[in-house]
Amino acid sequence: MQKTIEIENLSVNYGKHNAIDDISLFACKGEILGVIGPANSGKTTFLKCINRTIDFTSTSKVNGTVKVGGENVREMTSVHDLRRRIGMVFPLPVGLPLTIYDNVAYAPRMAGVRDKDELDELVETCLKQSALWDEVKDRLDSLGTKLSGGQQQRLTIARALSHRPEILCLDEFSIAVDPVTTMRIEDVLVELKKEITIVLVTNLVQQARRLSDRVAFMNQSKLVEFDEVDTIFGENPKEKLTFDYVRGYFG
């Protein structure tokens, strides 16, 4: 079992606000790590620490170590290379003001891929993986921003896959997507996890249960419990809070 993400004693402050308080956990290749917890518990901040987009929030202060592939992300020389190894999908879809094709080809181009055939193939594969290909294959040159919300979200997923990441992070991806499409994307995730690590932040406890191999439950900036999915959703998780949350008694 290969640990691709290792978090040790991570704390993040925004000014005086303590967004993440001393959490330690890990994610493995070939597994989906589900992160659940109520709003404002630090889930999104956690994702931002992995690809270091937290750096763009000037008030943030990060303590502890985040390792990706055994390497401390703070000590990496090229933050752009780090971000290319990680695909990110955020809750509100952002179609870049480019054509559908250019949206998906954006990251490879920024990484220096110029070959037309290679890009064509990549765009097709990624759009198929995100279950969008059939709907847009005849209009790849229309604007990505003109797609519907659900389609844009799948476009974002295609874009996140376009640089062949080792790690795919999804932050509540199903908010803007209908249930049928959600199921299709979930199937894709199960398929993808054979090769890569997936971190799935979700508000849907049942989605975490369906997909995850391990689950981290966060509440009020703290990691309440981190264990295998059967333990968290079983009869005897270590913390009563976890038991209450996954059964909907609280939160």
Partner: peptide, 25 residues
């Protein structure tokens, strides 16, 4: 701002983001 953030998340540098997204728009 969301365009810039999306671009940074894809591994583009600040200058690449400015050149391909911010200035054209």
């Amino acid at each position: 701002m969301s365009f810039r953030e999306a671009s940074w998340n894809l591994g583009a540098s600040k200058w690449q983001t400015i050149r391909t997204l911010v200035l054209p728009n």
